[in-house]
Design a binder for these strands. Structure first.
Lengths: 392, 392
DNA sequence: TAAATAAACTCGTCTCACGAGCATAATAAC
DNA sequence: GTTATTATGCTCGTGAGACGAGTTTATTTA
């Protein structure tokens, strides 16, 4: 009866190399060994074990042009573990796979009719069963990104889908009973941005996405700060707005209400739009085309957005702020207004020392899926601690 | 030329036991081995190495009353490493030591006249030199808690001391050139609360202290989220207050202005007090004694405090909120008001699911010193990764 | 074709943790 | 007071991982 600690210790070196290869796709064995401080002998030994365990493979390098024996490139083992990645949006679903290294296999986007959960989940489940049939035991985990509040394996609330308390653990069963990780799309996109996007390497990063309301997450060392119940990152429901205005969330003055399509409609004297996201798109297009009232509405939203951003920068001191969704548009159309508002809201000494850069997402709409893949792969790597990665 | 990775791996088991003993003072060897999953043989071997390295010792147990051979209690080695702990407040300084396990040696509190930095630092430096003379090489690090903004080893700004850009690295020299960790007093108190106080074990905890303005820190897994420049936790400068009111920090509407002695003075129609902290104390005493206007002023502050708290709970979703300073008084005198305001500011589903407990600090005024000791000891433990903890 | 260079492989050695068996220190039962 | 019971600590042979010196291999340059 060998204890877990010993096993964990044993595979430490192997796991370190595996993690490094995952986090630095395309790295050569020699580079990896150097940055981990491994001797070439140890690297050989560890690679032998990882190859035998079907975790990591090597391929011939693209010729570097330099002298000396070329080093092999570390890649996912061709028969190595895969994770299934499910991305659910208010109108589409996508199922694909990712291997160590994090790259997503291309996959088609399916539209759904926004019906009851069972209908959509059946389709997704069938796709997962297909992956299971194709890849068998290689399928090691499922990562799911959903547009709503997540608690454990259930989607507690998804306003755009009009779903409540939907249990997603059936998806794990469809994929053969493998571990399941479920996350909010914005949180996962933030993770992706911190691991492989515009916030890579930042010790503390803030990710904010504006669609209908504001979603976001604080990332510390690439890990999302999800809070005690997994519902952290509700920055939209901090009262940076008009204290007299009641939010559907039950609080008043929420920042949410000042930034999105609903706010623009109010600025323009219109009724609340059916689809605030689409409405915001129209207003932004008009503003880009030079329409005066539209510009004013966009500028007002940009100002409110920047004011809140400045306050969050005061409180959290991120090294970088990454924006997605309408945030990118506000930055493009009224970047000066955003920056000026951030400036005004920031503490004086922060202005002097330089505020963090505010940059658009680099992964765009693939963020949630990439983040879901990372979450699932992290679970797979963590699980290996218990498995045997021994010689032969 | 042995690489670092190998050394790090070698001492892993020893470090794990050492950390466990540090984090669970008074644990027995048998308990520690069980929770780390070590066999009794391994525990013996590791303890042998740790004893030989003068890191950990054992003492005879208090009789448990149970059957069987009693297990020894893990304690800091009597000749083991010590850290010097410096706590600087607006009116006092204290220098003491802590060993593995984190307990502070009792030490007198010295008053200072709030003069120029050199004067006070000379006194502190002399005390550190004294510790160095007494303990020699056992003194392994210095941890400092200061009432102000810290950047690296310099105290960038300390309003109550009227210091700016004071370099503290001289303190390391006084102690014999050992590593130095400097931290903001509120951040360190938060760390202490998370590791050994009321927030122990919480995955995410929020610590807030009200003195003049609001200091605080978010703790994730016991580690402070200090942000990119080390200036995170400025929750007092988030605009939960009156948007028209300008804050000395350069922003407007800061929460700070609504909660402390200055706010109470405004409520009472008084001029801004010289010493807002002392003034707040008087108002609280009057409120406790039943004075009507004082009660109203305290209630207003409690309401503003609770409103901001609720917003922060929305954004960060802590498992527990720990209060210090005036926050404790507000909770005692007007706890109902605080809780009601939190309730109103929280999102509806959070109200339903239960808000996190809001509790007073358990470490009181010793928080900053305990946190400084923890920070310094963490540096010492991290350093051991490179040292040899080998047999004999 | 040979020299230079960089990387991978081989193999003897070291250290760590394991675990089975034995020794020890306390309480409980008689 | 003596013996059984129980939990713990110690001894020691074993296996695994990483090291590093020396050797082999693959590529570029002369």
């Amino acid at each position: 009866m060998t204890t877990m600690r010993a096993e964990a210790l044993r595979v430490q070196g192997a796991l370190a190399l595996l993690r490094h290869a995952h986090e630095h796709p395309g790295v050569t064995r020699a580079e990896a060994a150097a940055s981990l401080g491994l001797s070439s002998g140890s690297a050989t030994e560890i690679m032998g074990r990882l190859r035998a365990a079907r975790l990591l493979g090597e391929r011939a390098p693209a010729p570097t042009g330099g002298r000396g024996r070329p080093s092999t490139v570390l890649v996912a083992h061709p028969e190595g573990p895969l994770v299934a990645v499910v991305e659910l949006t208010h109108a589409t679903w996508t199922v694909t796979t990712a291997a160590i290294g994090g790259e997503l296999a291309p996959a088609p986007e399916h539209r759904h009719r926004g019906g009851p959960p069972g209908e959509v989940l059946a389709e997704v489940g069938a796709a997962l069963a297909g992956l299971r049939a194709r890849h068998g035991d290689r399928l090691a985990a499922v990562g799911v990104a959903v547009p709503g509040t997540v608690r454990g394996h259930t989607l507690a609330q998804a306003a755009t889908l009009r779903w409540r308390d939907v249990d997603l653990s059936g998806l794990a069963a469809s994929a053969g009973g493998v571990p399941l990780t479920v996350g909010n799309d914005a949180s996962l996109a933030g993770v992706a941005e911190a691991l492989r996007g515009a916030a890579r390497g930042a010790a503390v990063a803030l990710y904010l996405t504006v669609e209908v309301g504001i979603g976001g997450v604080l990332l510390v060392g690439g890990a999302p700060v999800l809070g005690a119940t997994g519902a952290g990152g509700e920055f939209g429901h901090v009262p940076f707005g008009d204290p007299g205005r009641r939010c559907p969330c039950g609080a008043t003055g929420c920042w949410d209400l000042m930034v999105d399509g609903r706010a623009m409609a109010r600025s323009l004297g219109r009724a609340e739009p059916e689809d605030p996201r689409a409405f915001a798109g129209e207003v932004l297009a008009a503003a880009r085309a030079g329409d005066g009232p539209a510009r004013a509405a966009v500028t007002a939203a940009a100002d409110a957005f920047g004011r809140g951003l400045g306050a969050l920068i005061n409180a959290l001191d991120p090294a970088v702020v990454t924006l997605a969704g309408l945030g990118v548009d506000l930055l493009e159309v009224a970047g000066d207004t955003v920056v000026a508002a951030v400036h005004r809201a920031a503490m004086a000494w922060r202005r002097r020392d330089g505020l963090p850069p505010i940059v658009p997402t680099r992964l765009g709409s693939r963020g949630p899926a990439i983040g879901a893949a990372e979450a699932a792969l992290a679970a797979v790597l963590a699980d290996l601690t218990r498995e045997r990665v021994t010689r032969r």
